[in-house]
Design a protein around this nucleic acid. Structure first.
Lengths: 245, 245
DNA sequence: CGTGTCGTTGAGCGCTTTCAACCCTGGTGG
DNA sequence: CCACCAGGGTTGAAAGCGCTCAACGACACG
């Protein structure tokens, strides 16, 4: 976790491009940037551990951070994957509560670290900023609830189907493409299944003609057919997951 | 869902007692109350269905509302249980997104329904209110993440242990009491297990001397022993759940 | 005393996990 | 140029935990 100071102008540029800071005046950005540090986290290095205090707001410049809950058996339950432009730490700072998950770099990642005191002060002063953060936290809540819905499914097919349907473009039954936003093992951990089961389920759906798997790119043939899977009470022979015809 | 108009003064009193409205001036409360309706929902009657628009903010006066995600097999994944003084609908109104869960009355429930437009307007005008709602949404997010942690556990005994430890008073290893906030089947649905498994797991922990079950009242003997359960890699014989010595 | 709700207990099945080996790709250095 | 290695992903076989369905018991209520 190397702290390095970069030119303020560059930071202001970076921040100015983010939705939450679009409406900010120049002097506000300067104030914010004055409390910001540039942080580099190497792959698999933890930034914050579960239960520890969070002292600042983080913005991802490049790379990917993995937010996950560590499980007793050494596995992880991935809560979120943060890419360039995403920020995290807001809710912990607002409530002054310890971090409910581990935060580790999935690969070498550049972050902007904004001092928590300045964040809270700005929240209290700048109404537009508060509204923006409120929206952001609401979005995080909705995402978490979508994950909850996925993980609540009991069959892995239902989980994967629900997961894929999140990327559906139109409301119709057309096909669409999904590029997995992370390693398959991390996606599996987000769905609450093992990577083996994820691989098997994808293979099964592929064999059934529901989807076409090509590495990290998945083409869904028909959205309706996929949606019908978790609506109906599972007509397919369950054992087919492992059996090879 | 009967709409009935009550005296404004009574509503103002009710609202004034809630934390979010403590700082409000009288005329603000009057404005809010003018857009509020008193709603009664009978037991097992749905208020909002998953995917439908939410048009107002709801405050529970008495009774209990159950927020849950319906599952393919007819089961429910309980997301939250709202009692007197709780409010819900904020995040949907802020984002203008459809409701991500079903909302049904667990028993006959009295609600205050505050018009969504007035809510949003007040949010945009009243900075203190926006801050308060932000805190509330952050708390909801944290609660949801705690539920995520529980449901991520693989073994039911880990789920129940983690659930019970949420009610721990001190950080030490003393015992403490837990009064279940709802029917056992709803608690089970919140933990992501069937009511049968919940019953069996409680019975198992009872027999082991870890806890003492007395209807909806659970006495935890020692917090440390309970915490040690999901830390260690499950030394107890798994079959003991069902076997009776 | 019948009825409905809630909770408990029992037996069997099945999906997922676990552990294992194997394949594939990309990077590296001799 | 090729052998070697590491990381990620796939496939196989066995075992376990929770679900399902069913019956029973406790309790409140009319």
């Amino acid at each position: 976790m190397n702290g390095k100071f970069l030119p303020l102008s560059h930071m202001q540029d970076t921040l100015g491009r983010m939705s939450c800071f679009k409406t900010w005046r120049k002097e506000q950005l300067a104030l914010l940037a004055s409390g910001a540090r540039n942080v580099v986290v190497e792959k698999n290095v933890p930034l914050v551990r579960k239960g520890r205090r969070v002292d600042s707001l983080y913005v991802v410049l490049s790379g990917q951070m993995r937010l996950f809950i560590p499980l007793p058996n050494g596995m992880e339950r991935v809560v979120a994957l943060m890419g360039a432009g995403d920020s995290f730490g807001e809710s912990c700072l607002v409530l002054e509560e310890p971090c409910p998950y581990d935060i580790v770099a999935g690969k070498k990642t550049h972050l902007l670290s904004i001092d928590g005191l300045i964040f809270r002060q700005e929240l209290h002063t700048n109404h537009a900023y508060a509204e923006c953060i409120l929206e952001q936290v609401c979005r995080r809540l909705m995402e978490t609830l979508r994950d909850t819905e996925i993980c609540a499914q009991r069959l892995s097919i239902h989980k994967v189907a629900t997961f894929l349907l999140q990327f559906r473009t139109g409301a119709g039954g057309e096909g669409f493409e999904v590029r997995l936003p992370a390693r398959k093992r991390d996606i599996a951990a987000r769905l609450g299944i093992s990577q083996e089961t994820f691989s098997r389920t994808l293979g099964f759906m592929n064999k059934q003609g529901l989807i076409h798997v090509e590495g990290g790119l998945i083409r869904v043939r028909d959205a309706h057919t996929l949606a019908a899977i978790n609506a109906t009470d599972c007509q397919h022979t369950p054992a087919e997951h492992q059996d090879v015809s």
